[in-house]
């Protein structure tokens, strides 16, 4: 499978000004994101997640190392403005604060904003905007003004704006962090739908473990380094390591992990409440069976 994004030994430092010292936000980070995959990036505050995202969107220039986006190397002297424009056309981002990324005063015009920047003909923009609003389930708010929508609805409008540009890869930088549980669920459903049905490559930055556990692959950042990476089952099978990086594991995993330590024979790769309950009752049955 081809890779949407390849990152090799990427380091990045924010230069200090005045009294503030330099801050090294990323150190020798390497990973790949295959096309069509769903990758979650975990890490506590200040671990470099947003810095990484803004480098992938060409908002910050990589310090040292290599960043390859859809086969095109984006590091080095010979990167032109057109290359950057092209990379931005393929990799989009939805930010944390839903208020600060909506430009227009009417929902559909905001969704159209990116397409207008790409110079797409009006009729085609119209089609794409309607389709994108359908995908996120916001078609009936097309003529509303964004400031009256709920946080989750605003975030879905922002997602529609990214979809309408037909991006191949979308990065969500804690896009659910400011939402209530209901809004969070809607947005997560939209994200999964994009990944499964439309084959969009998704990179989800989050600190909700339950969200991360739905990904194909998890990358854990700690102090600007990759602490561990792998499938959710692999990453969560070693909760101690995550606890050390002051991260949680999904509650169900933690429960099963504690049961396993107490001598129960349980699997650890279960992340939803029902599966967890079933596994526990199975383990208890089994132990009872042994005793009898």
């Amino acid at each position: 499978m081809k890779n949407a994004i390849e990152v090799k030994d990427l380091s990045f430092t924010y230069e200090g000004y005045g009294d503030s010292p330099d801050v090294t936000a990323l150190r020798d980070v390497s990973f790949t994101v295959p096309e069509g995959s769903f990758t979650a990036i975990l890490g506590h505050n200040g671990s470099g997640k947003s810095t990484l995202a803004s480098i992938l969107c060409m908002l910050e220039e990589p310090g040292s190392g290599e960043v390859i986006i859809y086969g095109k190397r984006m590091t080095g002297e010979d990167v032109t403005d057109e290359d950057i424009f092209e990379a931005r056309r393929r990799v989009g981002m939805v930010f944390q604060n839903p208020d600060n990324q909506i430009v227009a005063t009417v929902v559909e015009e905001d969704v159209a904003f990116g397409c207008e920047n790409l110079g797409i003909p009006s009729a085609e923009i119209r089609k794409r905007v309607d389709a994108a609003l359908d995908t996120v389930g916001m078609r009936k708010y097309a003529r509303h003004s964004p400031h009256k929508l709920s946080g989750g609805q605003k975030q879905r409008v922002a997602i529609a704006g990214v979809i309408a540009m037909k991006r191949d890869c979308i990065i969500f930088d804690e896009s659910t962090a400011m939402l209530d549980p209901l809004g969070r669920r809607d947005v997560m459903e939209t994200i999964e739908k994009l990944n499964h049905e439309d084959g969009v490559t998704v990179i989800l930055i989050t600190h909700y473990m339950e969200e991360a556990s739905r990904a194909d692959k998890i990358i854990v950042l700690d102090g600007g380094r990759v602490l561990t990476e792998g499938t959710p089952a692999e990453v969560f099978s070693d909760p101690e390591k995550l606890w050390e990086a002051s991260l949680d594991v999904p509650q169900s995993t933690e429960l099963l992990y504690r049961m396993k330590k107490a001598g129960y024979d349980v699997r650890l790769d279960i992340f939803d409440a029902e599966g967890c309950a079933a596994e526990i009752s199975r383990a208890i049955e089994k132990r009872r069976g042994k005793r009898v």
Binding site: C57, L59, F85, R88, R89, G92, M93, F95, N100, Q101, V103, E108, E109, A112, F113, G114, C115, E116, N117, L118, G119, I120, P121, S122, I125, R126, V129, G161, V162, M165
Partner: peptide, 16 residues
Amino acid sequence: AMECRCYTGGKGRTRM
């Protein structure tokens, strides 16, 4: 956010 959505000013921009 605008930069990320390929905004580069009025040049080459169309309208819906």
